[in-house]
Simulated assay, not measured.
Amino acid sequence: MQPVVGVDVAKGSSVVQAFTRRNEPYGKLESISHGDSGFERLGELLAELQARMAIAPVVILEATGHYHRGLVAYLERSGWTHFIVNPLQSKRAKGTQLRKVKTDAADAWHLADMYYRGDVLPHRTWDETFTELQHVTRQHEFVTGMFVQAKLNARALLEQVFPAYEEIFYALFSVTSLSVLERCLEGDDGDLVETIQACAGKSRSRRWVDEKARRLREILLDWRAQPRSQSQTVALSGMVSLLLSFTEQLSDLEKQMNELAFDLPEVELVKSIPGIGDKLAAAIVAEVGDVGQFEGAKQLVAYAGLDPGIFSSGKFTATSSRITKRGSKRLRRSLYLAVQCGIRGSTNKRIREYYDKKRKEGKPYKVVVIACANKLLHHVYAILSKKQPYRN
């Protein structure tokens, strides 16, 4: 029987237990650090086990956020066979035991036992470009969320500190508007024309720039004469600097996203679907990865967590059920947004027709949008598997 090493991954370290065969541990339980010395010790243990059993051992570990990635990178570099177990599957398998035990040692033992029972299947693997794109799109989503919260806070402060400024620029949170506001709050408003022209560039005429500068001078005279909270002024200045920093970060992330997407033909294929632009296409492809890993569209739908849960017991069968939500929440969110873009203005005629049909049947809005997301994901699977663009 093949030797197995069960690894319970934690932050900064992992608990390792080797087995020569089922329920026969080899050596003592060890804790290794996620560094060169720890990985070197793991390599020594694996080599020792291979020499003793005359067969390469298999490493079983659980996906644990980002903590397992350093260990997985070492195993891939060293050429050791490893399997990454879905935490949901691991937790369900533990539920078959009568005793309730939760320790690192028990988890490492349990992971190895799952392999011996035949419950472990090969994990998803894909090209490094997909992984890099996934990192960038997820970071973009994270920074965008903070950017939105920062804008809400900045607007609330602006309404209390400098309410008249909102009438100057239509795009209040554009780089031009934020840069000018930053100069005004700092009291450095000597040459507003040059400041506005430098930020706006050639996109605006000289007449537009002069008009903005004139209106700014007028409201600044009244603003300086009025009493205001110094602490709120400082807070607003800090939020403006933060917004400019977020804008720059998002610009850099979008540039990286476009560079990575250029090397992936799948992004262009997904973009051929009406209602899906650069960012949504990149996010969908990053979360789906290599579509060849899915046996069919239904498996991809299950991976996205858009498949309905089934509940039946005896003579009872549930007539209505919610989606499982056990897959990638980022993929679900991207598809939800893509459907909203597609039905708005009938951009995607097929999805719009399907949406209208379900609404006429009396289905609630969110139920219909989720059904459309399911259908859209079938379209995504079809164009990626056939490598052909979307056709109306």
Rank of each mutant, 00 (worst) to 15 (best):
Q197I: 02
K212C: 06
R214D: 00
E194Q: 13
E159W: 08
K212M: 05
N153R: 11
I196S: 04
L181N: 08
A164C: 00
W223I: 04
L216K: 11
G201P: 02
D189E: 14
E166I: 12
Q232C: 03
W208N: 11
L221M: 12
R138A: 05
T176Y: 05
V240W: 13
L133E: 12
S205T: 15
I196M: 06
G201E: 01
T137Y: 13
T233K: 10
S179H: 03
A213F: 13
F142W: 09
T144P: 02
G187H: 13
G187C: 06
I196R: 13
Q139C: 12
T233Y: 02
E166L: 15
L181F: 10
G201V: 04
Q139A: 09
K151N: 13
F142G: 06
G238F: 03
W208E: 10
K212Y: 00
Q160Y: 01
L172M: 05
A171E: 11
E141G: 08
G145D: 09
S205R: 14
A156K: 04
A213V: 14
S231H: 11
F142H: 11
G145H: 12
I219G: 01
S203Q: 15
W223S: 02
T233H: 00
E186K: 14
S231M: 00
A213M: 14
I168N: 10
A154G: 08
E182I: 05
S231I: 08
V193H: 03
Q149K: 11
G201I: 01
Q149S: 12
L185R: 06
I168D: 05
W208R: 10
A171T: 06
R204T: 03
M239A: 11
E186A: 15
A213R: 15
Y165C: 00
G190A: 13
L185Q: 07
A164T: 03
E218A: 02
L181S: 02
F142S: 11
S237Q: 14
Q134G: 10
T233S: 05
L192S: 01
R224N: 04
T176H: 02
V209I: 14
T137F: 08
L220G: 00
W223C: 04
W223Y: 08
P227W: 12
E194D: 07
F130T: 06
W208Y: 11
R138I: 09
L157D: 13
D189C: 13
E132R: 09
V180W: 07
R204I: 03
T144S: 00
S179M: 02
F162T: 06
G238N: 01
S229G: 04
E141Y: 04
A200W: 07
S203W: 13
C184Q: 13
R155L: 10
A200C: 08
R206F: 07
Q134L: 06
Y165E: 00
R183V: 04
A235C: 07
R183F: 07
H140V: 04
K202T: 08
T144L: 11
C184E: 03
R215D: 10
A156S: 02
R138N: 05
V234D: 05
V240Q: 00
A156I: 00
V234F: 10
E132H: 11
A235Y: 09
M146R: 15
S179E: 01
L220V: 01
